[in-house]
């Protein structure tokens, strides 16, 4: 298997100026020494708590932000070393699908214009006629048929599911090798969701694309992904084949995540007594301890003394937790 993306000790800190006169600053480590490999023709699922750094990792892999440390290889080349021409090629070969179909499209730009933009940037040699043909063909791939009826529409005239299809069309029209899909279905209801997920899976199966699928929803993620990585406070705490992560979660955080999936049973009403627990501290200040130590029911002294190693405890199943030392 060939890797398309390889991150090496990727760390990203956000420094924000606080107090009056902006003299004090605070630092959030959104990505903390992240190492992941995404294979060619693979859908790599990334799940985790809200604010854990998923979007930031997606942006880093597409070189849409700068890093504090680490490198990211795309087909073996560090994308942060790319110079102008190469960077332009990299931009053509990578794309992003955004979370919110309600705001990711410019409301005053027609569907034709927004979907054709990547071609106008990367394929200036194409004639207007060729561009129109390609747009129509792409809209049809994502199930917007008959495509010519959509060309002159504005996003406000379309439903959420249709808008998300436009977002996908725009992302695949330049024939990228790698796509980051950031929560592509979380704003959509079940019936629209199924169609969009199938379109994404078909991008892999029929067009051999590779993808990072970001979601906070493990149910949806396991449906599309070959492997899943679980993120917590900027660190990958578990990674493995998706069926294995669901059947045999090892990290205490992954277990909580799976146990908290709502069960549609009206006899199991949520109990307000369970509130007690503290609210997550959403910042990682780079402390030398397990990032889950403050919430973990199994916490021991050693968990606060050092970071647990990220290691393979079963074949292709990695976890960072002292319980598996």
């Amino acid at each position: 298997m060939n890797s398309i993306i390889e991150t090496n000790q990727v760390t990203k800190e956000f420094v924000t100026k606080r107090g009056f006169l902006k003299r004090t600053t605070s630092t959030t480590r959104a990505l903390d020494q992240v190492n992941v490999t995404i294979n060619e023709n693979e859908i790599f699922g990334l799940i985790g708590e809200s604010g854990s750094g998923k979007t930031t990792l997606g942006l880093a892999i597409l070189r849409l932000i700068d890093l504090n440390q680490g490198k990211i290889n795309f087909f073996g080349e560090n994308i942060y070393d790319l110079k102008k021409r190469q960077l332009f090629n990299f931009r053509e070969k990578t794309q992003m699908i955004f979370q919110d179909p309600y705001s990711s499209l410019n409301p005053v730009v027609t569907i034709y214009k927004s979907v054709s933009t990547p071609l106008k940037v990367f394929h200036k040699e194409m004639s207007e006629e060729q561009v129109v043909d390609k747009v129509i063909q792409t809209l049809e791939t994502v199930g917007l048929t008959p495509a010519d009826q959509f060309l002159n529409k504005f996003p406000t005239q379309m439903s959420g599911g249709q808008r998300q299809r436009v977002g996908i069309a725009r992302a695949v029209i330049s024939d990228p090798d790698f796509i980051v899909a950031d929560e592509p279905v979380s704003m959509l209801d079940v019936s629209l969701r199924a169609d969009i997920l199938n379109i994404l899976v078909n991008l892999k199966l029929k067009l051999n694309k590779s993808m990072m699928f970001i979601s906070h929803d493990i149910t949806v993620t396991q449906y599309v992904s070959d492997r899943i990585a679980v993120m917590h406070l900027g660190q990958i705490v578990e990674m493995g084949e998706s069926g294995e992560i669901i059947k045999n979660p090892l990290h205490p955080y992954t277990k909580t995540l799976i146990d908290s999936i709502p069960v549609p049973d009206p006899n199991k009403k949520w109990n307000t007594d369970e509130i007690g627990g503290q609210i997550s501290e959403y910042t990682n200040e780079g402390k030398n301890e397990c990032s889950y130590a403050n919430k973990c029911p199994f916490v021991k002294n050693v968990c606060r003394e050092r970071r647990p190693d990220f290691k393979e405890v079963e074949k292709n199943h990695f976890v960072a937790c002292v319980l598996y030392d």
């Binding site: 799940i47 985790g48 708590e49 809200s50 979370q99 929560e183 979380s186 704003m187 906070h216 929803d217 493990i218 909580t256 995540l257 908290s260 999936i261 709502p262 949520w270 109990n271 307000t272 369970e274 509130i275 627990g277 609210i279 997550s280």
Partner: peptide
């Protein structure tokens, strides 16, 4: 209106139980 759709199940549950309280 779809107030917790962008949240993971753990945080979603924390917030909703607080609202129930």
């Amino acid at each position: 209106d779809e107030a917790t759709t962008a949240l993971d199940v753990v945080v979603q549950r924390q917030i909703l139980t607080r609202l129930l309280k």
